[in-house]
């Protein structure tokens, strides 16, 4: 059998394309929702990690470390297959989004923290000396400066989240990968899988390149 016919069967690809598109749409939805929720969770965790009273600070730190350590697949399976034993039954989409958000939030919190800690102490002092409160200092002085610095690592994290959405196929969510494996089974041909890989690349490769460019620009700005 011809290798090209096997992996790049255009007819099979064309036939499975609508399925792949549907999967892509779900993948993007899941990715975007988890990234956004992860940003909100991450900012909240970061503020607690840095500024809450000490017991909350310690708990937040434990959360962050635990969720950066646990394999996402394990977490996902716990959320989807273990929670029903205590009566919590979540749809595949919500399960996947919950797991992705919990982990993304932990990473995002650490990214925000590094961005805040990179701001010189004098900026906090100048704001305090002017009579700005903690919240105003954060919103008007610190975070706008941190954001520039954390855009490359946040984009990196977003890339990881989108990649990790593929794990949702194990909880029967019809995402891009799941659709591709189904199309492959239907056609008895692996071309849809290659198609899915190409679609992932088409979305994520530009982002990877963008991060490199941003990082280069930021490091030049510092010099």
């Amino acid at each position: 059998m011809d290798l090209f016919e096997t992996f790049f069967n255009l007819e099979v690809l064309a036939r499975s394309f609508p399925m792949l598109l549907k999967g892509l749409w779900l993948t993007l939805e899941l990715g975007a929702a988890s990234i956004l929720a992860g940003l909100v969770l991450g900012l909240a965790l970061c503020m607690m990690r840095l500024y809450a009273v000490s017991p909350v600070r310690i708990l937040t730190r434990i959360y962050i470390d635990v969720f950066r350590s646990i394999p996402l697949l394990v977490l996902l399976i716990i959320v989807y297959y273990a929670l029903p034993f205590i009566g919590v039954r979540l749809s595949p989409f919500v399960s996947a989004m919950t797991a992705l958000t919990m982990v993304s939030g932990a990473y995002t919190a650490e990214i925000f923290r590094s961005g805040i800690e990179a701001i010189p102490k004098g900026q906090f002092e100048a704001a305090a000396a002017l009579g700005l409160g903690h919240r105003q200092t954060m919103v008007d002085v610190i975070l706008p400066q941190s954001i520039r610095m954390v855009i490359p690592p946040l984009t990196n994290n977003s890339i990881n989240v989108v990649k990790d959405t593929a794990l949702a196929s194990v909880v029967a969510m019809p995402d891009l990968l799941k659709q591709a494996t189904q199309a492959q089974a239907l056609a008895a041909n692996p071309s849809p899988l290659i198609g899915a890989a190409a679609i992932y690349l088409a979305f994520l490769l530009p982002l990877v390149l963008l991060v490199s460019r941003l990082e280069r620009r930021l490091s030049r700005g510092k010099a």
Partner: peptide, 9 residues
């Protein structure tokens, strides 16, 4: 302050 501490953004 000695080091000005203006807000650069």
């Amino acid at each position: 302050f000695q080091s000005f501490n203006l807000f650069p953004h």
